[in-house]
Design a protein around this nucleic acid. Structure first.
Lengths: 248, 248
DNA sequence: TCACCAAGCTAACGTAGGTTATGAATTATA
DNA sequence: TATAATTCATAACCTACGTTAGCTTGGTGA
């Protein structure tokens, strides 16, 4: 998997926005795959930052261990996602990142990206990726602040569903989700007991059927209606002016 | 105020990182000031995106009105902050932005920025700004998720204090903060009643003295210790490699 | 100076969700 | 196949915070 296969670049590409030159630059970034075992740590908070990673297989997550013993998860990374943009512009990692299940990641250095910046307009793609991730976090912020656990979990599941659908990892409204309820609770800022309770509610209502790591949403749109999902931050293409720039 | 006077660019500048050429480019962005009255709206959610703004005077905030009638505030913008980076890469605004008190803002178009991208390495500065804002949000996420209202408010006040100190708006541990308790409650995701309760606690403990829009923190470091404040996302300079790039 | 209104304080009461605990189901390891 | 370790479900109890309400304070304008 090369950088061109990541979410944003793929989006650019399908719009025919990338010039041959820019494509060549992206493909030129040699991405040597690294095989990761489950719960293997990519990096720890406060380590020096020197690289991004593209997830090729498996799921990963960024988190911070808090002084009170609990853990806050910021983001889950699915295949095609770029990890580490958050730390771009800082000398040290702001969060730790670890694999959830086993998988494959492809690291590439900041240095390589700098060289791109100097030679091409691809920077906008990176900026766009960064803002997209920020937008995802912002949506989470809303649900943390103002909605009940029921609505939070609904929103979370629907977001995962949409992201997996984008990478063709949903079949018959079913998908593989290697998350324990404890991981979910760390992401949503609630207790794992309450995650369980809330899953029970969703199950009784027939909205979510879950068997371990296998999730089925009989009627995904019903979930979306429950939370009035704002999917522009996931689905939207780049504005036309971006495409123009990238063709040059 | 030109773009060069914004937080990140100022940081770059004081490190001697900006080449003459890049400085000239930044200064060339004519920023015509616009005088804003209190609670005037800069833009609404879903409007077309076409510009950033630099806050010259006054405070502003980004927010979204929720279907349940409440409001979630994402960010407060102080003088020197750039508003609108969040929307860069999207065709429509993700949040509304309004002034809190009266002030002055300087808009500049995305188009102008694109031209910079094509001609210089300044993109890294923008990326860095975007990631810094993201980092701020991430910290808020932690406090929303895992900490009590007391700790949240403490963290919030200390963050404002630090940001104001950076722009020399703190004197004798005192500063001007034009926020009502209701605005704070919308930002922290709690009720305004509970914000008041929590302020009372902080007052009784002698940690925060507040008279309307005037705040004094007799011992700021005491607050920092309470929340183990991670200030790297506010204070840290850019990594050396960025500076190198920007000199060219 | 008075009237008005927004902002803030405090109290009383209700509830969503935290905590602790126990047991069942599932997976991993020997 | 037995044993241990996770993961999940459900119950009982508790608390931080939301909600509603009534009062005080301070700023603003005629």
């Amino acid at each position: 998997m090369s950088l061109i296969d990541t979410e944003v670049m793929r989006g650019l590409n399908t719009q025919g926005a990338l010039s041959h030159e820019n494509k060549a630059l992206l493909l030129g970034l040699e991405l040597t795959p690294r095989y990761m075992s489950a719960s293997e740590v990519l990096w720890q908070e406060r380590e020096d930052t020197d690289q991004f990673c593209v997830v090729k297989e498996g799921w990963a997550y960024s988190y911070r261990n808090l002084k009170n013993g609990s853990k806050q998860i910021f983001n889950f990374y699915l295949p095609g996602d770029i990890i580490g943009i958050r730390d771009f512009g800082f000398t040290r990692r702001l969060t730790s990142v670890a694999m959830i299940n086993k998988g494959v990641i492809c690291p590439f250095s900041y240095q390589q990206l700098f060289e791109l910046f100097g030679r091409s307009s691809l920077a906008v793609g990176i900026v766009a990726t960064a803002t997209r991730q920020q937008a995802q976090l912002s949506e989470r912020l809303i649900y943390l602040g103002k909605y009940s656990a029921y609505e939070q979990l609904t929103h979370f599941l629907y977001e995962i569903y949409l992201r997996l659908k984008r990478i063709k990892a949903v079949e018959n409204n079913s998908f593989f989700m290697p998350l324990t309820q404890e991981l979910i609770s760390d992401a949503l800022g609630m207790s794992s007991v309450h995650v369980s309770r809330t899953f029970s509610m969703l199950r009784e209502e027939g909205l979510v059927i879950r068997k371990r790591q296998h999730v089925m949403l009989p009627d995904p749109e019903a979930l979306a209606r429950l939370v009035e999902f704002n999917d522009s931050y996931i689905d939207e293409f780049l504005p036309p002016s971006f495409s123009e720039l990238l063709k040059s």
